[in-house]
Design a protein around this nucleic acid. Structure first.
Length: 197
DNA sequence: CACTAGATGCTCT
DNA sequence: GAGCATCTAGTGA
């Protein structure tokens, strides 16, 4: 796992499909991920160099990069690549395989297959917030948040990343083919400015 | 099912 | 101030 996460994100990302992400009682089997290649990637938060928010991405691999999105949501990445490269894998969706009661309690209106179908839904169901930014996912000793060894790869679908403006044609989104918990593709749409005045 | 609009606040320029 | 690696509720078929 550590060797895998030391490599480039477009290699690590598809291999993480099927891996188990555990947070307390709730666990998710990853079914959809995206690769982000740091300063070399126009879609990456690290594109314009390090900032306070993206500091974790520039740190060692195997840690969680958690950021706040759209004023309401948390999204989680796994930092990969050599330290300083700021590469990461965004965890976009998964299937809840443990702690179903807790998961349902955190998203009471969602059907089971939608519980972790989307990056912000996944963090909500697992109870992940900015407090988890920077924690190691590979540590031993029973930490709250852990990433298990990936299973042998099954059929993997690939396509462009969801909702990104830069490098919109780069096919760095990977998912478990045919899995119902994979989110729907949506291209980037510029936010319409409210009328002036 | 498809599509639209609004919520909501942090981050960086 | 502009721009978000999003989600939900609403409408219409």
């Amino acid at each position: 796992m550590r060797e895998l996460l030391t490599g480039p994100p477009e290699v690590a990302a598809p291999r993480l499909l099927g891996a188990l992400l555990s947070a307390g009682a709730v666990a998710v089997r990853l079914t959809e991920v995206e690769a982000y290649a740091g300063p070399a990637d126009p879609a990456s938060h690290a594109f314009r160099g390090p900032t306070p928010r993206t500091a974790t991405m520039f740190g060692p691999p195997g840690h969680a990069y958690v950021y706040f999105s759209y004023g309401m949501h948390w999204c989680m990445n796994v930092v990969c690549g050599p330290a300083g490269r700021a590469s990461a894998v965004l965890l976009r969706a998964g299937e809840v395989v443990a702690g179903l009661p807790e998961a349902r309690g955190r998203r009471p209106r969602a059907r089971d297959r939608d519980l972790a179908r989307g990056p912000a839904r996944l963090t909500k169901v697992l109870g992940i917030t900015g407090a988890d930014d920077g924690v190691s996912l590979l540590a031993t000793g029973g930490p709250r948040l852990t990433l298990g060894e990936p299973l042998p790869a099954t059929a993997v679908g690939t396509g462009p990343r969801v909702g990104v403006a830069g490098a919109a044609d780069t096919a760095w989104r990977f998912w478990v083919a045919g899995d119902p918990t994979v989110s729907v593709y949506r291209p980037h749409v510029p936010r319409r400015r409210p009328p002036a005045g």
